[in-house]
Nucleic acid binder design. Structure first.
Lengths: 213, 213, 213, 213
DNA sequence: AATGAATGAGAGTTCATTCAT
DNA sequence: GATGAATGAACTCTCATTCAT
C-alpha cells in the first residue's frame, strides 16, 4: 500500500506553493523587482529549493501564468451553447460568473501581471492571446451575433461591442491592483454593482428618450 | 539681448530629450529592464551626463511622468463649462479630442507605464490619481449629472457610467501596447471607430426593442 | 561460514564503483566541473549514498588517487634486482610493462588528474611525489647507474637521463588526454612504436657517424 | 597634440594587467578555482571593472591564452630556413632559445593551463593544436628530415623523434608547475643542464660501445 | 559641463552537504 | 542503509551611481 509521508505531502504541494507565492509577489512588486529569494521565503523554503522545481525565475513566471490560466481556458464555452433564454440574460450571467470565478481570484490577477510583463515574455504573451483573449472574444462575439440574428439585439458592430463588454471589468481589475490604495472610488462601488450598471446601460442606453419612434 | 548659441540651445533641450528617450524605453521594456546608459545613449549623451540633469533613475522616471501629464491636467475642463448643446455631443467630442491629443501621443503611453510601475512609485501613483484620474472622473461625472438634471439622460448611476465611458479607450491603449503585436484585432478596428461605436451603444443601448413604453 | 547475499556483494563493491565513476569523470571534466551527483549517478547510487562511503568530494578524490596508485607503488622494483642480462634490455622491458599495465589503464589517467589538481591537493601531491615519482626515479636511476658501473652505458648524467626516459611516455599520456581529439598525430603513432623508437634513439643516438673512434 | 592622461594610461594598460593577473592565478589554482574577483583584485581593480574589458571569465581565459601565444606563433620558423651549419647545432640552439624565451616566461606557463583546461575549452584547444603544437612539430620535423637527407642523421622515424625532442622540456615545465614545491629534484638540475644532457644523449646515444662496426 | 572608467551592492544560479524519512 | 528534498554559502555577472579628468 502506498504510504504518503508528511515530507512527501509537502513535496507535492511545493510547486503550487511556489506558484502562489510568485503570483502574489509579482502582482505586488512586478517581476523584475521580486527577488527569487523572496518568493522562496514566502513559500516557506530556502532560495535553492525554488530551483529544484523551476529552472529559472523566468520559467517560474511562465509556469505561474500557465498554471493559473489553464484552469479557466476550456471552461464556460460549453454552457453558452446550452442556454435557450435571452442572450442578454446569458451575457449578464456569464459575466457575473466570470467575475466570481476569475476576476476575483488568482486568474484575475494574472491578467494584470500578464499585461505588465507581456513585452518581456513574448511567447507567453502569444500563448495568452491565443488561449485566453481570442477565445473569450470569440465566445462573447458569438453570443452577440446570435442576439443580432434572433432580433434580440440591434445590428451593432460585433467587435467593438465585445470590447465594450469586456474592457470595463478588466480595466477595473487592473486599476484596482495598480491604484487601489490611492483611489478609493472603487471601494465604494463593488464590482457587482458596476457589472449590473454596465449591463443595464449597455442594454438600454444612456438616453432618456429613445431615438426610435 | 542674450545671444543663444547652438550649443546653448542643445543644452536647454537636454532635459526634454532625456525625458523623451526615457519614455520610449520605459514603454518598450519597462522601468527595471531599461538601463540608464540606454536612455543616455538614446538622448545622444553619455551616461554621466544624465546624472547632471536627474539625480537618479527613479527621479528621472518621476520627472518623465509628471512632465508628460502636466500638460494635460488642467486642460479641457474649461471648454466643458462653456458648452451649451447636448451633453451627449459634448461627451463624444471630448472623448474624440482626448484620443486625438492624449491617447495617441506620449501622454497615452504614460498611462501604461504609470499603471505598470504604480506599485514601485507610490507617491507618483498618488499624484497620478489626484491630478489625472480624479479630475477626469469629476469632469465626466459632472457632465453626466448635468445630463441627468437636464433630462437628457436617464437616472443612471454616475460613478459606474463614468467608468464605462473611460475604461474602453484606456483599456484599448493598454492592450495595444502589451499585446499589439500578437493580437491584430485592434489593427482592424480603429480607435475612432471604437469610440463611435461606444458612444452609439452607450447612448441607445444594445436592445432592439426599447423596454420603455 | 558467512553467507554473502547479492545485496551484500553489491554493497561491498560500492566503494570501488564510486572510485571508478569518480576517476572517469575527473579525467573527462576535471575535479571542479564534476558534480557529486554525477559521480553517484554513474556509480548507480543516489547522491546521499556517496557520503556514506566518503565524507566529502575532496576525500573521494584523494581516495581515488591513492587507490589507483597504491597497486603499482611497490611493484616492479623486485624484478629489477633479479635481472642479469643487459640493462638496456631490462629498461626496455620495464617500460613496455609500465605502459601495458599503468599507462594504458586507470593508473595512467590518474597521472593526468594528479598533475591537473596537484595545487588543490598539496598533501596528495606530496604523497604522489614521495610514493610514485621518487620511487620510479630511483628505480630507473639505479639501473642507469648499474649500467654505467658495468660499462654498458657511457657516463651520462643520471638525473637528466632518467627524465629523458620517463618524460616522453608520460607526456604522450597527458597530451593524448588533453588534445587527443584535436591532434590526431598520436593516433597514427602507437605508444609501443614510440617506445621502441625512443629506446633505439636513446641507445644509439641520432647521429649517423659516431663521434668516437 | 594628443595628450595622454594618467587615467588614460592606466586604461590602456588594464587589459594586459588583467591578463597577467589571470594567468598567474590560473596557473596557481586552475581556472575553476580562481574567482573573478581575485583576478580583479590582483590586477588592482574592482570586480566590475574586469567585465568592462572581458565579457565573461571564459572569454578572459581565451584572451589570456591567445594573447600569450600569439607573440610566439609566427616566430622562429624563419631562422630555421636560413641556417647553414649542422642541423644538430641548429636544433640545440633553437631549443635553448625556446626555453629562454618561451619556456621561462608566460607562454610556457600557458602550456600548462592550456593542457589542464583543454577539455573545458575545446575550440581553444583546437586553436592551440593548430597554431602552436602542429607548427612546432612541423618545424622540428622538417629539420630532422633535412638532417636525414643530408646524411647528418640516421634514418630515424621522424614523428617519434620530434616527440622525443619536445616532450622532455614540456614535461619538465608541467612537472615544475604541478609538483615543483614537493619535488626538489628539478631545482638541482637546471633546465639548461637538462637540455644539454638531452641533446648529447639524443645525438650520441646511451650506449658506450657503438653497435655499428 | 561632459565624459566614461571605475565601483560595489545586489541579483540569479549552482552544488556540496545534511538529514528526515 | 539508502534516498533525494532541502539548505545556504559561494560564485558569476549586472548596472546605478560616482568622480577624476
Amino acid at each position: 500500500m502506498a504510504t504518503v509521508t508528511p515530507r512527501q505531502r509537502r513535496k507535492d504541494a511545493r510547486p503550487q506553493e511556489l506558484l502562489d507565492a510568485a503570483l502574489a509577489l509579482f502582482v505586488e512588486k512586478g517581476f523584475a523587482a521580486t527577488r527569487s529569494e523572496e518568493i522562496a521565503a514566502r513559500a516557506g523554503v530556502a532560495k535553492g529549493t525554488l530551483y529544484r522545481y523551476y529552472p529559472s525565475k523566468d520559467e517560474l513566471f511562465k509556469a505561474m501564468v500557465r498554471e493559473n490560466l489553464s484552469v479557466h481556458i476550456t471552461e464556460s464555452a460549453a454552457q453558452a451553447a446550452l442556454h435557450t433564454g435571452s442572450i442578454a440574460d446569458l451575457l449578464h450571467q456569464m459575466m457575473r460568473a466570470w467575475w466570481a470565478k476569475v476576476g476575483h481570484g488568482n486568474a484575475g490577477v494574472v491578467c494584470k501581471v500578464m499585461m505588465v510583463e507581456a513585452r518581456h515574455f513574448p511567447e507567453l504573451a502569444r500563448f495568452y492571446v491565443d488561449e485566453v483573449i481570442k477565445p473569450s472574444q470569440n465566445l462573447i462575439g458569438g453570443l452577440i451575433e446570435r442576439g443580432i440574428r434572433s432580433g434580440e439585439f440591434r445590428a451593432v458592430p460585433v467587435e467593438a461591442t465585445v470590447h465594450l463588454l469586456i474592457a470595463p471589468m478588466l480595466h477595473m481589475l487592473l486599476h484596482e491592483h495598480s491604484f487601489g490604495e490611492h483611489d478609493i472610488c472603487h471601494q465604494t462601488m463593488s464590482a457587482e454593482d458596476l457589472l449590473d450598471a454596465q449591463m443595464a446601460l449597455l442594454l438600454h442606453g444612456l438616453l432618456a428618450a429613445p431615438p426610435r419612434t
